[in-house]
Nucleic acid binder design. Structure first.
Lengths: 209, 209
DNA sequence: AAAGAGCGGTAACAGTGTTACCGATAAGAA
DNA sequence: TTCTTATCGGTAACACTGTTACCGCTCTTT
């Protein structure tokens, strides 16, 4: 059972087609929303038959999972690219800002990942680890603050979980259109500051910056 | 252009049919989720043609709006029924607990109202005021605390907004299955306590109760 | 060179929201 | 009372959706 050159080439070709399809799906999701993510529409966009999507992704659930991990990959890159300036606490806050920035920049991806768009799709397989990996960035940022003695009084997982709930609550309500005011950023920062306050020694005026 | 007895009877009959259809839709939503909310399925459930739903609700969007206000009505009744014991702060916390209790009791309604289930439906018309009316219960609870001198340092709208973001973040992530631990209630309470802390004078040990 | 296997296009099936048609029923007019 | 008219609702269709059986074509293997 050796792998021939043909099989390798075919495999690589399929990977390319997979990437092209995922690209088209991403473009449709970002520009037209989850409703445009139909198998026929994607197939038409890349110029192939619907059968290809089924052989490469195994149906719409597989495509949903691929989009899920793609979305978390984009999210992860955005979080990692957040500005860092030595102060772990400032870095943590920059990360929380980056969280909100990404959600507002690609709200439909955020809806797919965190608000159950793509009805019928339940994350499973590679979806869970992808999400965990991204959340770990937040946990690590909190851990850095604790290692530097800037936060204390709980585990990093615990504090990161509270921050996650807070920023997700602010961002998801904003995306859903419940807040049509301009000070959403301040509110999100104020919420995160309140969450951090119990674990913080010095006074906290980040939300006013 | 007077209203005849026939027209009144016909109107009342249509109201009854509307209620029956809404009941069937509610039963389907609660027991099988938003995916079961198809026009044909509902029509089959009540034993009529799909045309009736179109004449009474004007399509699936109208039915979505009717379900939206129905959901907020259920939510509102639940929040009003929260135990009250004289202490405004305890009442506020009971209200926040009731918020989470409702979301977990009827998660699919919560998804419809706050997480954009029913793809393609955008709240408009009576949907906005219904949501505002429900959120006003929270604002009023905060206002009661401020009137009693138990909270200070912001407007009731502002504090209620922060609490809403917090409890929604906790509850929506829990509903989506991101927290499979048993201490979700404690985490939600801890988050709300942290949000309240900056506006509170005395120490706060509610989350440990 | 012949046999076998897998990919992919066509076309179908069951399901969705929506609407044109058309019969029935009742209000209003002669 | 009888006839016209308008509205309600059932049937059946249209354009979609996800999914798959069929079948030709290509490439590997013997």
């Amino acid at each position: 059972m050796t792998i021939t050159a043909y099989q390798r080439a075919q495999q690589e070709g399929q990977d390319v087609v997979r990437a092209v399809i995922l690209d088209a799906a991403t473009r449709l999701l970002v520009t037209e929303g989850p409703a445009a993510l139909t198998v026929r529409r994607i197939a038409g966009e890349v110029g192939c038959s619907t059968k290809v999507i089924y052989t490469l992704f195994g149906g719409k659930d597989g495509l949903g999972e691929a989009l899920w991990v793609e979305g978390f990959g984009r999210f992860e890159r955005r979080l990692i690219a957040a500005p860092t300036q030595g102060d772990p606490l400032a870095d943590l806050r920059a990360g929380l800002d980056a969280y909100r920035d990404y959600a507002l920049a690609e709200p439909d991806y955020y809806r797919v990942m965190f608000m159950g768009a793509m009805p019928g799709f339940k994350p499973g397989g590679e979806a869970g680890p992808a999400a965990r990996r991204t959340l770990d960035i937040l946990v690590r940022a909190v851990q850095d603050c604790m290692d530097a003695g800037l936060l204390r009084g709980g585990t990093a997982e615990e504090i990161a979980g509270l921050l996650w709930m807070a920023v997700h609550g602010a961002v998801s309500l904003e995306i859903s259109g419940f807040f049509h005011e301009a000070d959403a950023a301040q509110r999100s920062r104020a919420l995160c500051s309140a969450v951090l306050a119990p674990y913080l020694l010095p006074p906290d005026d980040w939300s006013a910056s």
